[in-house]
Deep mutational scan, measured.
Amino acid sequence: HNLTITQGKLFFHYNPKLCLSEIHKMEEVSGTKGRQERNDIALKTNGDQASCENELLKFSYIRTSFDKILLRWEPYWPPDFRDLLGFMLFYKEAPYQNVTEFDGQDACGSNSWTVVDIDPPLRSNDPKSQNHPGWLMRGLKPWTQYAIFVKTLVTFSDERRTYGAKSDIIYVQTDATNPSVPLDPISVSNSSSQIILKWKPPSDPNGNITHYLVFWERQAEDSELFELDYCLKGLKLPSRTWSPPFESEDSQKHNQSEYEDSAGECCSCPKTDSQILKELEESSFRKTFEDYLHNVVFVPRKTSSGTGAEDPRPSRKRRSLGDVGNVTVAVPTVAAFPNTSSTSVPTSPEEHRPFEKVVNKESLVISGLRHFTGYRIELQACNQDTPEERCSVAAYVSARTMPEAKADDIVGPVTHEIFENNVVHLMWQEPKEPNGLIVLYEVSYRRYGDEELHLCVSRKHFALERGCRLRGLSPGNYSVRIRATSLAGNGSWTEPTYFYVTDYLDVPSNIA
């Protein structure tokens, strides 16, 4: 807008934040220059609390790290170098490059900038070799853009010569660093050979998330399962459950009422301010606690030095998902009996873990797994792929695949051998790939016309006998059925096997 004052003059007093240069501009645009008398524009009460600059400061050096910015700028000295009290560095987070010096300023003089007072450097006698002032900004957020400017702080001049310097606002972004852990990993099994893994992005990506790394490792069953005799009275049979499938998407929606109208769909109840505040506090606490764990609990591995020492970490090797089922080394339970199943799973520490690289999504279907087997899954978020990966501390989750139908069934015939004193040795093959492992066998036998009897055969007993022995049988026709019990439950009964026990007292003698 054009402003013209045809008559009258300007009068400025007691404006401590208004620089004289701005008042002189007002004289020019209003056409009143030359009308004012000496005392109409006070030299001592206008701009006496402001830094009124008329020179431009330029930054000469900028260096960044993930949490620091090192700045240096060209030296500046007023005509009387004693008038320079120091520099004021202003900075704040700036997602967009549209910041002005006066953003967030209120009537009390406060604003949204963080201000650092910096002492002037030592003055050199040689004007050509003056030290460049600077400042190291610490405690910054990774991968965050900051708006920065600097200006001088000078003393009051009796001659009211307006001098000083100020830089333009520059924008500097800190470097990326390792992201925080992925949030809320959930693993479920939808079949006997697959596990579905879902997660949420890290709360602090500290860069642009480029991919996720998912490692999985087959877990050995508890050692007590191999040692305890679950045929003993009072000892509860062990059981394991597989990871249940995901709930429906509708039930997972946030901010939804727990109660549904019987007449149909209901609208979600909005969260109160107290609920939102509580969630923010919980989120802040979780982030602080995660940072504490990362800094205190997890110790970084030592990389190899120039002395030739090897990095103890196993090298990563990509495998196809079809090879995942046989990740671990199978060892027989008892070496003397080769027909026992290889369900003991000690994992070799030198073995390469299978892994998958996930790009542009937060889910993965891990296939080719062994049925009813526990897996430990390790999830890392990465925001750099080359020249070397920059990934987060791992988040861990466990899951067990679903049982395989008929995996616990005894394959092959049940054979028998009759000894003296009416002892019958029953023999059968253990299931080759049971659900988890076989903890015991149930032997059901009966003599024709009598009630059915049951015998429990422990895992250890089966390994020693290759089956079991029935003792003290009365003469007669017998039928026997056997079924295995694994961590997933009972298998199917075998087809009945028949044998006849004679009275050993009636056996004919070869003595003449």
Rank of each mutant, 00 (worst) to 15 (best):
T307E: 15
K287Y: 13
S342M: 08
L505A: 09
K460E: 07
D291V: 13
Q429T: 10
Y292K: 12
R318D: 12
A263T: 11
H416S: 12
L364G: 08
P387M: 12
E290H: 15
L364V: 08
E465T: 08
H211P: 01
Y498F: 07
S243W: 09
K278R: 06
T340K: 14
V393I: 04
Y259H: 04
K271E: 13
N422M: 05
T497H: 06
D250W: 08
H371T: 11
P332S: 11
Q256D: 12
L470G: 00
Q275I: 05
N255T: 06
T502W: 13
N477W: 09
P245R: 09
A484L: 06
E351K: 06
L464H: 09
R218S: 06
S284A: 15
F419M: 07
T340E: 14
L369Y: 01
N490W: 15
A335T: 11
P508I: 05
R319T: 11
C456S: 02
G325D: 15
E260W: 09
G234N: 06
R218P: 09
L505T: 15
M427P: 01
Q275R: 12
L237S: 12
A463G: 09
E217C: 08
H454D: 12
T307W: 06
R313D: 03
G234R: 13
A484S: 04
T497M: 09
L321C: 08
N477Q: 08
P349D: 09
Q384T: 07
E258M: 03
E452V: 05
R481A: 09
C468S: 08
F298I: 09
P338K: 06
N477H: 11
E310V: 13
S274V: 13
S348P: 11
A399D: 02
L232G: 09
L473M: 09
E217R: 12
V214I: 14
F462V: 10
R466D: 11
A263N: 13
E221M: 14
D291H: 13
A336W: 15
N360R: 11
T340I: 13
V214H: 00
P354N: 11
V423A: 09
D450S: 02
I438M: 12
N383V: 10
I482G: 00
F499P: 01
P238M: 04
H211E: 15
T307M: 08
N510R: 07
L379I: 12
P205E: 11
P434T: 08
T502F: 06
C456T: 02
A399Y: 09
C266D: 13
Y396I: 10
S203R: 13
T485L: 15
S223H: 12
P413K: 12
K236N: 13
G374V: 08
Y448T: 13
V365P: 14
V296A: 13
R318Q: 02
G467E: 02
A463R: 10
L437Q: 12
P244C: 10
T307N: 12
P387D: 01
P508S: 03
D250F: 13
Q252F: 06
G306N: 13
P496R: 05
N490V: 02
S458Q: 03
P300W: 02
A407G: 01
E420D: 10
S203Y: 15
E260H: 14
D250T: 08
L487V: 05
A405R: 08
W242A: 04
V327A: 11
H425V: 14
C391A: 00
K233E: 09
S243K: 04
A381P: 01
V480W: 06
C266L: 12
E258L: 07
N421T: 10
N206K: 09
E281Q: 06
S262E: 02
T494L: 02
S305L: 08
H425N: 11
S392T: 02
Y478K: 01
R390V: 05
V296G: 04
E217H: 15
A394P: 09
V414H: 01
A463K: 06
S262Q: 10
P270E: 04
Q219W: 06
C269R: 05
N326R: 13
V424N: 01
Y448M: 03
I438T: 13
T272D: 03
E404V: 05
I482F: 03
D222W: 14
N255R: 05
T386E: 12
P338G: 09
D385W: 12
H211D: 01
Y504D: 15
S474T: 10
S239H: 06
T288Q: 02
D273Y: 13
V457K: 13
T241Q: 13
V439Y: 13
E362V: 09
N435D: 01
C269S: 05
T343C: 04
S320F: 13
I438A: 06
F226V: 12
F289Q: 07
V358P: 10
R466S: 11
Y500H: 08
S367P: 12
P312K: 06
Y445P: 01
Y504A: 07
N208W: 15
C391S: 02
V324Q: 05
R447H: 09
